[in-house]
Nucleic acid binder design. Sequence first.
DNA 1: CGCCGAAATGGCATCGATAACATCGCAGGG
DNA 2: CCCTGCGATGTTATCGATGCCATTTCGGCG
Lengths: 361, 361
Amino acid sequence: MSSETPEAGKGPVRKRTAGDGVARQPGMTDVARLAGVSAQTVSRTLAGHPNVQPKTRAKVLAAVEQLGYRKNNAARMLSSGRSRTIGVVTLQTNFYSRTNLTFGIETAAREAGYAVSTATTASLDTAAIEQAMSRLAEQGVEGVVLSVPLVHVSPRIEQLTRSVPTVTVDGSRTPATEVVAVDQTLAARLATRHLIELGHESVWHVAGPKEWLDAASRCAGWRDTLQAAGLDVPPVLEGDWTPASGYRNGLILGKIPDVTAVFVASDEMAFGVIRALHELGRRVPEDISVVGVDDIALAEYCSPSLTTVAQPFTEMGALAVAHLLRHIEDPDAAHEPACVEPALIVRASTAPVGGRARPRP
Amino acid sequence: MSSETPEAGKGPVRKRTAGDGVARQPGMTDVARLAGVSAQTVSRTLAGHPNVQPKTRAKVLAAVEQLGYRKNNAARMLSSGRSRTIGVVTLQTNFYSRTNLTFGIETAAREAGYAVSTATTASLDTAAIEQAMSRLAEQGVEGVVLSVPLVHVSPRIEQLTRSVPTVTVDGSRTPATEVVAVDQTLAARLATRHLIELGHESVWHVAGPKEWLDAASRCAGWRDTLQAAGLDVPPVLEGDWTPASGYRNGLILGKIPDVTAVFVASDEMAFGVIRALHELGRRVPEDISVVGVDDIALAEYCSPSLTTVAQPFTEMGALAVAHLLRHIEDPDAAHEPACVEPALIVRASTAPVGGRARPRP
DNA sequence: CGCCGAAATGGCATCGATAACATCGCAGGG
DNA sequence: CCCTGCGATGTTATCGATGCCATTTCGGCG
């Protein structure tokens, strides 16, 4: 068995890193040799193929253990054509929504035996998104979750979505794409209706940037609800999701006597709004009611605790993965958009118009 | 030139996906054929090799464009042995710190021409971390940033860090590892000293979970500072980083008459503490001063705005990548631990003992 | 005018794993 | 007793790009 010395200068060429002395990572061939079987058998064993004798399997596993063998994904993919990896394109920020969504996606993907590769983009412009998708394509992902509030879809992106199964999350849909989304219109409706039911005669709105699709949907939902109730629609204030922008808009709102209720498009902005109102001496919720969106962890622990609309991000990530995998396995399946529903969480930042606050929870 | 039909049943074997009709992704060979050059020349052109005639380069690029060619990372890696990818092991949470760190890492890595592959782990136990590192190793990463508050390092993990260049961030060091960290002891010192200088005769502490190295360091820094000032060291309260745990501890602190100053190990917990104190009728900062750690975006926009210790996460991510790359390129380089310094940001949640609050900013 | 050397390009082996096919051995039916 | 059939394993070709070496091309200089 030890007939051939491993060092018997096989080929004339040595590829390995210049730094000698470092033992190279063992490959399947090494495992096979040690176990006294062929590489193919090793492959079968590790793939869990049924037709392998227990004794052989044991030998292989022992060899794997002994050599500290680790499979080489690049080789596996090149050979099999499958990467068992899905890609996520997401904005490079730490917005609560993005982070949690990614969380959900990763969990679900891992459970299904897929790895996740993330490509972040610093901006929303088409070129940057194209780049991110290209990077994923180069990595050989089998599918992509586009978690970017796309409004404009470039032809190039559309082409990409045609060659790789894609699910958009909170983004606009393209012909070749499945869509999974939280019903943002409903979120806005819930918030606005809540305020109307408390007796407010008008509800103001601090929106997100209009390039963001979910900001636009929330704005639309808010407007529709007001109109349906026969109420006036005040002008829209626009923020950029940051607490600072909420603060700026809060300073404006606080100076307008009519304002008794505000629907803010995100919790972080809502914090800024409340802070500004506070400084202007307008009490929340006694003078002005505020509703946010997201239900971030801190929403419950500020004063007053924030009434908000919770979005099931994690669940949505899972749903997106499920759709994507279905689509990968059966490319001809129909694209049925899926929608998950947000839920209103009433806390202490809203109160009947002109009334006293409810007792704090 | 058109002497051989492409369809001349070359090999007996067809690998491609069963679904026929779908044109397969073009490869270098296809590009080469279209451009009328060899695959090798295509490779050189795309790698930016200098010795390629402009005219040839142009032809190649045109062919690439026309075919929509995308390089195949798996093949490239298998062949060259380099993946130009670094891995990040991180906890699957949306803690502010983790998110921002990842942000910094990604940005820096991308600038250096490296891709980033993230492996998240749901728990801190050794097995889970081993798994995450293995996943990265299988992907062929050239280096790893371990962003996990490791306290115990298993031999197996140590073995892994020996075969792949590794930088620990906020984690304990292993012999084969470089360390980049925020000086958490200093963070605690800054916060505690600030409170002492305001005249408080004792400073309480709400710590993070003791398994977390940074929680432990902050706790140590706090204790040392108190002792150095000749003050008593009150018992430690322990939270789990969540606002809820801060709230629970706040309820306890609020019942203890002696308490006039609290150093909380994270901003999110600090929010909970403040909320609890509020409910118990203890005013912040008039009755009790509170300092947090992290400087999350909302710290400035709550009432009162939060005095906190800012940590340069993004910068630290960049530093970690720089170290890692240096180590990848020169494996024999010395491991010098690097430290970045946190900064105290004084806002409105702290005031002189028994004194009135400073005017709000 | 011819030869040299650098620039430009092509040929071939190779990375590590897998698919497809070939082989071998053994059990049971005709 | 031979042959079929299936289970277990080995063999070979291949995925796509790159490293190394060979080859061609060409400008310049003795």
